[in-house]
Design a protein around this nucleic acid. Structure first.
Length: 934
DNA sequence: ACAGGAACTTA
DNA sequence: GTAAGTTCCTGTT
């Protein structure tokens, strides 16, 4: 995407006095523009995609604006093979074919560029890089200033004192010093650097395991590739072997990475001057491709495609033309730091008369229970934001507005349901403000969740990552202003000027992200409804659960820690005796040494890195024949319990509330599940006897009970619904024990003749099904032969043919459209589904099978939580509280006086959360603690 | 002080 | 065979 100069970016001097030669890497532009998410949806009424065209023209427009006197030449790759393929047939062999949506935009783009009067070069048998290199070299020899606009790092080899690169995305120029800074090598070493590393994408071989760090190190030592090759025998270790193995093909890699600078061109750079645009042809083309804004610019007499319109703060509408506007760049910005009442009131008026605004809180801690408010920032339109510092208290900090007065002024605004709030991870801000007695309402757009619903796996969803991906903008990082490590400052200690810029930028960028992501999300009906109807409404529900916390009995845990400690001491002594020496039981490395080298126990399995594994399953097997593994196993299990749970949980109780407050993360998992951290309440032990005891410390308050309600077999029920397999649907409809029913089918026995062992096998098969099983995996799980496992699997599909069809359909859908979806339309993209690497492809296929089930289950319990929360709000009875969610289970605290009827009501709400073609069954338990309730 | 791997916990 | 998070150790900053 184009970016005009941001007031925040540094050393970005643009030469406008001379007439530099501007070489545009059209193919790199095209590729980038095609992958900009919010451009992908653009098309004409009859379905011709135009997003890449729009993107490239925007970038060109921006370039023209930045270099008004520049002599622009646009270069594209020609179709077909190049001389590099002759040199090396596998060159770029891994590239997937160009998608039709992209291919169909090339010819129109060429036409438009030509009509604009820009020289366009498409030279067969070489790549655009080579043409650019040739022109740049010619210009350089004549001392002409040249700027190459590209996103391709390989071009760094072309940089000289007269030739600079400009990054298509960030608009940052890179000169000789810039290359050295960015890559750690000089421009004349770039080819050596690239050859050593190789290039996965282009299929250029390099030295195995040699990445940027190693390449830079070697080149710093030996100067050139030749130098490195000459000294290859001196390099030690595995990487030295890798280097020596690569010696023969390194010259080829070098050749492939070298941009050819002597392509025969018919015209020189000077001869390729721009001509006047052919307005008539341009008008026709813009009309044909429905490029409305460009058309409007044309009639207004503008010739460029500059995109400097200010985007309104209102929720963007869902239309193609609006989306085009949303492709706005991060441009000029103006940030206010509010220290006086008059300016504050001015902003307050504007906020009060807005229909939506972005805001962000700055605090002393990422832990919402400990955080103290330090300031607030706001943005109503892109580029204009304000920071209200409240509690900066470093020496000679300026006087700030009174916190309580400011919050009193803001309270009605923040609690208004009419004025919509935009934010990044608003649950955090809501939790913090709730400590100041402000209950934020009108929470409509959380950019983190927008990005997550749009594509859960394309990026992480923190603001820095989103700004980079969706705005091509690199934000000020917290560490840049606060430092890191032990010396990190808290926000109140940071200089107000610096803090103000950072904070205001946060609000500004959040607003711009919303303007970029939401329209893209709104292009697809179902993901939008997941956002609007599930995720955003859930946000305040989770906030309430987090703030409510859960009660634990620290004394019980302390006692358990003590007895676990004693047992661990015994085990340690026993282990040392068995080993004949003292060692650290927690160190897999020391354990390997003792087990496999000193005691000469046979190696069963290796870790991915090649070391002999001491994993649980291995020790389990060894424990049959040797005493030490058994001791280690018990030690490991118990020390995990002690360090993670019984020692740690009491320390995490909030002094303010006396309860444990987790964080639920709404934008982490690929499939739509929640995750929980600090502490993770979703992996509290249950399977082992010892582990269960930890649940006894999760207690109800006085006169209350713990009620746990969980969905029974929810994923298999979803499978029944999705596949509509007759046998599976019938089994559930008749309320059968599903594992038993499966066993009866597979082993061809009557239902009441199924043995425990058969049921166990059937259960493993059912689980395998949910996980996209292979016969191999099943064999391992059941400890049977592969053949046998394959027979079970065949039998299963024979008995439940609908399931087989469903799985085949899902794989196909994933392959064709690149994503799978839940019943409610939550999408999971599978970038590896067409991977060349068979392992990755297979893994993606399993994920594709599993995601609709796991994801639908997540959707269902989220809907149940919404229904429960709404009912709780209606009851307005503080004797009932929803405290935890563990994927298919909700946990409540309920006063003993109303526990029975309330539980029945909650079970009903969960059962009726959604309508499936099989019954949805929630089962409950009631007790004084979580163990009893489960 | 931090990053990565191995191991262990859950649904 | 799916999806997560935490702790400890180890080797590198």
């Amino acid at each position: 995407m184009t970016t005009s100069q941001s007031s925040t970016s540094e050393n970005n001097t643009i030469e406008s006095t001379k007439s530099p030669l501007i070489l545009v890497d059209g193919s790199s532009y095209l590729f980038r523009a095609y992958h900009v998410p919010y451009l992908q949806a653009l098309s004409t009424a009859d379905g011709q995609p135009t997003g890449a065209i729009t993107g490239v023209l925007n970038m060109l427009g921006s370039l023209k604006k930045d270099y008004p006197n520049g002599n622009i030449i646009v270069i594209f790759d020609a179709k077909g093979k190049t001389f590099r393929n002759d040199m090396y047939p596998e060159y770029k062999a891994n590239r997937p074919p160009m998608p039709d949506e992209l291919r169909s935009q090339i010819a129109p783009l060429h036409e438009i560029i030509t009509a604009m009067g820009l020289p366009l070069l498409v030279i067969p048998d070489v790549e655009a890089d080579d043409v650019i290199g040739t022109l740049a070299k010619q210009a350089d020899e004549q001392g002409m200033e040249t700027v190459i606009s590209t996103g391709d790092k390989d071009m760094a080899q072309l940089v000289t004192p007269h030739v600079r690169l400009i990054n298509t995305m960030t608009n940052v120029e890179m000169d000789v010093a810039g290359v050295s800074e960015k890559f750690g090598v000089r421009p004349d070493q770039i080819i050596d650097y690239l050859a050593l590393m190789g290039d996965k994408v282009d299929n250029i071989p390099g030295v195995v395991k040699c990445g940027p760090k190693t390449a830079v190190k070697w080149l710093a030592e030996h100067g050139t590739l030749e130098g490195v090759i000459a000294n290859a025998d001196k390099v030690k270790g595995k990487i030295g072997e890798n280097l020596r193995e690569a010696l023969e093909q390194l010259p080829l890699s070098y050749q492939l990475a070298t941009i050819k600078c002597d392509v025969e061109l018919e015209q020189s750079a000077e001869q390729l001057a721009a001509s006047e645009p052919d307005v008539e042809a341009l008008t026709a083309l813009y009309q044909k491709f429905e490029l409305k804004r460009l058309l409007a610019d044309l009639t207004k007499g503008k010739t460029s495609a500059n995109n400097t319109e200010v985007v309104k703060a209102a929720a963007p509408k869902n239309s193609a033309s609006e989306v085009e506007v949303i492709a706005a760049e991060v441009g000029e910005s103006q940030y206010d730091i509010i220290l006086d009442q008059a300016l504050f009131e001015q902003w307050l008026d504007k906020l009060n008369s807005s229909i939506a605004f972005a805001f962000d809180t700055e605090t002393t801690s990422v832990d919402y229970m400990k955080a103290e408010l330090v300031g607030l920032s706001f943005a109503i339109e892109a580029g204009k934001a304000a920071y209200v510092p409240l509690m900066h208290d470093y020496a000679d900090a300026p006087e700030q507005l009174d916190r309580d007065w400011v919050l009193a002024q803001l309270k009605p605004l923040l609690e208004s349901t009419e004025i919509k709030k935009i934010g990044q991870n608003l649950k955090y801000d809501a939790n913090v403000l709730s400590q100041y007695n402000i209950e934020v309402k009108g929470i409509a757009f959380d950019t983190m969740i927008e990005s997550y619903c749009y594509n859960s796996v394309a990026t992480r969803h923190n603001m820095d990552a989103l700004a980079l991906k969706y705005l091509g903008y690199s934000t000020v990082h917290f560490e840049d202003i606060a430092g890191k490590g032990a010396k990190q400052l808290t926000f109140n200690q940071i200089d107000i000027e610096k803090a103000g810029h950072y904070a205001a930028e946060d609000a500004d960028i959040t607003l711009r992200l919303h303007q970029a992501i939401f329209p893209a999300l709104a292009q697809s009906e179902k993901p939008l409804s997941v956002f609007n109807d599930i995720e955003m409404p859930l946000l305040p529900v989770l906030a309430r659960m987090e703030q409510g916390g859960v009660l634990i009995d620290s004394d019980v845990l302390d006692q358990q820690s003590h007895s676990l400690g004693q047992r661990l001491d015994e085990l340690e002594i026993e282990a040392h005796n068995l080993a004949g020496k003292s060692f650290n039981l927690g160190s897999p490395k020391q354990l390997q040494q003792i087990l496999f080298e000193e005691l000469k126990i046979p190696v069963i399995k290796k870790t991915p890195k090649g070391a002999p594994s001491t994993a649980e399953e291995v020790l389990q097997e060894l424990a049959l024949d040797y005493p030490l593994p058994k001791v280690i196993l018990e030690n490991r299990g118990l020390s995990k319990l002690k360090s993670t749970y019984t020692d740690k949980l009491p320390l995490m109780v909030s002094p303010k509330t006396g309860r444990l407050h987790t964080s639920y993360h709404q934008a982490v998992t690929a499939t739509g599940r929640l995750s929980s951290t600090e502490p993770n309440l979703q992996n509290i032990p249950i399977r082992s006897e010892q582990g269960r005891k930890i649940r006894q410390a999760f207690i109800a308050p006085k006169d209350h009970k713990i009620v746990a309600i969980d969905y029974s077999q929810i994923e298999l029920r979803i499978m029944a619904h999705l596949s509509n397999d007759k046998g599976l649907v019938t089994a559930f409809s008749e309320g059968k024990d599903i594992h038993k029913a499966t066993a009866a089918e597979i082993f061809a026995v009557e239902l009441d003749e199924v043995t425990t062992d058969q049921r166990r096998s059937a259960k493993a098969i059912n689980f395998g099904l949910i996980y996209g099983m292979s016969a191999f995996g099943l064999a391992k799980q059941l400890n049977i032969g592969r053949q046998q496992a394959q027979e079970y699997q065949d039998k299963y599909f024979q008995r439940y043919p609908g399931v087989l069809t469903y799985m085949e359909d899902t794989r196909q859908q994933a392959t064709e459209q690149g994503y799978v979806e839940t019943i409610f339309g939550r999408r999971l993209y599978l970038p590896d589904i067409n991977a060349k690497n068979g392992m990755r492809k297979k893994a993606a296929e399993r994920a594709a099978i599993n995601a609709p089930m796991q994801g639908t289950a997540a959707d269902i319990i989220k809907k149940a939580m919404l229904a429960v929360d709404q009912w709780l709000l209606e009851q307005n009875d503080d004797r009932v509280k929803m405290t935890m969610q563990v994927h298919d289970e909700l946990i409540f605290e309920i006063h003993q006086d109303i526990v029975e009827e309330t539980t029945q009501k909650l079970v009903a709400l969960m059962n009726n959360a959604v309508e499936l073609s099989v019954p949805l069954i929630a089962e409950y338990g009631i007790g004084d603690n979580w163990d009893e309730a489960h």
